[in-house]
Amino acid sequence: MLRYLLSRLISLVLSLIVASLVIFAVLQVVPGDPASFMLGMNASPDTMAALREQLGLNGPAPLRYLHWLAGMLHGDFGLSYTYKTPVAQLIAQRAQVSLPLTIYAMALSTLIAIPAGMVAAARRGRASDLAVMGVTQLGIAVPNFWFAMLLVLIFAIRLHWVSSGGFPGWQAGIWPNLVALTLPAIALALPQASILARVMRSALIEALHQDYLRTARAKGLTQGQAIRRHAFRNALIPVLTILGLQFSFLLAGAIIIENVFYLPGLGRLIFQAITQRDLITVQSVVMLLVAAVIVVNFLTDLAYAAVDPRLRRPG
């Protein structure tokens, strides 16, 4: 177990290093001088020089990379060119929206999908299965941001149940923010829940065909007991894989959905940064998103080991 943990931990750190290298390298190939790229054609040489200094563009690339890396480890992501504030501070503010939204959506998706998938598998071929399969087939095909627009259209514009967007901020208390995040979370969660429910269903059906389930039935377990006690835990293994992948989809989805609901999250930050050519901010936010995905993959690996003893080799 300890060895498994260690090897996963090492691969986590390696992935982070390689990812940071890739991001750094990609932004090095920006055609021309990043400073002039950011400032446009008519910048004065003085501001250019100042920006070059600030961007840390002076010096060899390996040194600048190490400088950037060391800075991030201290929580120093550089200074945003457009906002004139530390990027770390910007990210911290915006993550307060994006991260809760992602987690909210993930919780919703899981809470809907797992029971739906189980019901469909247990009642395979019957009405409830067909209903789940039909709805999820549709759910997979719906782009989350369009679903979000429809929700706004119905619940905000027609029914006036909620406001069509905005975010009060956490200082206003938890409840108003949860309400503000509910429509976006539903819009994000349903398409993902459709995928997850189908995976849950097919994993469970697969598990139902295994020999050990026949063994369990021969011991005197009812079909329901056999599903709960034996099939479920085995079916979780492929479901965990999808859950891990879903985090990255949800995070990316959150970035898009923020546009529909005018939520001041990481998505809005990064798109503004792109239009304003704020490379420092782009670089840092991308690194942060990728790091989040890598860390979640690491957690998924740990969850595997918790479910599947074959991964916890003694030693």
């Binding site: 085995n234 599947d308 003893p309």
Partner: peptide, 14 residues
């Protein structure tokens, strides 16, 4: 009681 042919798959691996 009943036992089956394939011992490698007859037991729940987890």
């Amino acid at each position: 009681g009943m036992i089956f042919q394939e011992p490698m798959t007859a037991l729940n691996p987890v």
